[in-house]
């Protein structure tokens, strides 16, 4: 499994890739429709936060829900300006 020591040996880009590959199926299980976008949003957070989410389903779920709210607010703003 994914440990901080494994991550520290990889380049920053590779670290995000490794975290993304593990987060994506979990995000997809919670929110199937926007999982690519939500995973991308989560990957902008600190790696330590991402590792915590991988170990804590409640943390991941609440962050995914927050991402959905942020996306919906953003999309609502987009359409109101068109």
């Amino acid at each position: 499994d994914l440990k901080a020591t494994v991550l520290s040996a990889a380049s920053p880009g590779e670290q995000k890739e490794m975290l993304g590959e593990r987060l994506f199926p979990l995000v997809q299980a919670i929110q199937p429709t926007m999982s690519n976008k939500i995973t991308g949003m989560l990957l902008e957070l600190e790696n330590s936060e991402l590792l915590h989410m991988l170990e804590s389903p409640e943390s991941l779920r609440s962050m995914v829900e927050e991402a959905v709210e942020v996306l919906q607010a953003h999309q609502a703003m987009d359409t109101s300006y068109k």
């Binding site: 994506f24 995973t39 991308g40 949003m41 990957l43 953003h74 999309q75």
Partner: peptide, 21 residues
């Protein structure tokens, strides 16, 4: 509460799904 999440973030496309080996 202000969110730290950025709605303009780049989408993540997993290698394992995009290119099955």
């Amino acid at each position: 509460r202000k969110s730290t999440l950025n709605p303009n973030a780049k989408e993540f496309n997993p290698r394992s799904y995009a290119q099955p080996k």
